[in-house]
Write a protein that binds this DNA or RNA. Structure first.
Lengths: 154, 154
DNA sequence: CTCCTTTGATTGACACGTCAATCATCCGCC
DNA sequence: GGCGGATGATTGACGTGTCAATCAAAGGAG
């Protein structure tokens, strides 16, 4: 009884092995990409996400909350991160003329240059470590797996 | 020329879409599992990893460096984490009798109880959010994808 | 036995993330 | 106009992670 009851609830050893392999590999991949970005471009993944969103924005500026939405971050996380990026001269904060509560985040010349210098190395690394590591079928399967998992996360 | 040269180096839009879906979903999954563990059991994923390794060890104790190896952490990370866990009474540090430099990490009664209380909820969540979200074929594919990716990471 | 290098572990500084609290402004409603 | 709740953003406290520096004990070479 215990055996059959359990099997409906707890993963088998093999399922657990796949789970660990999957989640640890994804983490290792993220870490490796991040380390290369840091080593080659002196940017963290967070910096890259912020700079990407700003680069694509009208006039290279965004309302703080809009930026947070674009990259899927909590506001406070963004606020802390912008503080660090501002210290390094990658972005600048300006007051918003249409809403005195608001802040606008502006890409600086240095920020723009840093992003331009980072994009090719970063995308090359994505290709090398992810796209080229998989067969076309596996790449398709990876997309479907992500979709299926995301559906459960709601 | 630019077009063909580029295509050998940079991912296509579709490849990039898959990449983002994959890495963001893995991250979201990790976050959700971690949040549940925290909410239901008051343990972080790090706590869980440490407690799991100690639970499986002889006499529920391990040399600090052995523990770090088991869970794949840097020593300093472990040292910081053990400090926090010790404050909460989950583990205890003892001097090592065979090597005066060494420290042994010992699972306390509370630590053991916390781990016992966490394992079923955690594994259930893994089944619900990962195993049950995928078809058997997808689960197999996920394992193969992880293996292929890991091969490139060395 | 005495150097001197290696090893086990900790520490400090700093980047990153989350949560709760704060604070000013905006805006609907009377 | 003015009050009161929503909204935009920042801050502080704290857990987490990495890197470089530190420090004591171990262990081999002379």
């Amino acid at each position: 009884m215990t055996r059959t009851t359990r099997r409906r609830v707890l993963p088998t050893t093999e399922e657990l092995r796949v789970w660990r392999g999957f989640i640890e590999t994804a983490e290792a991949l993220r870490a490796e990409l991040g380390a290369r970005l840091q080593a080659e471009c002196a940017l963290s993944p967070g910096d890259y996400a912020v700079l990407l969103a700003l680069s694509e924005a009208e006039e290279r500026r965004l309302r703080s909350s809009q930026l947070a939405d674009d990259i899927g971050w909590e506001r406070s996380r963004l606020s802390h991160h912008l503080g660090r990026m501002e210290k390094r001269g990658l972005i600048r904060r300006e007051e918003c003329r249409t809403d005195n509560r608001g802040a606008e985040v502006v890409l600086t010349t240095e920020g723009s240059a840093a992003f331009r210098g980072a994009t090719v190395p970063h995308l090359t690394a994505v290709r090398e470590l992810f796209v080229d590591a998989l067969t076309p079928e596996q790449l398709t399967a990876a997309g479907e797996i992500a979709t299926a998992l995301r559906a459960k996360l709601g």
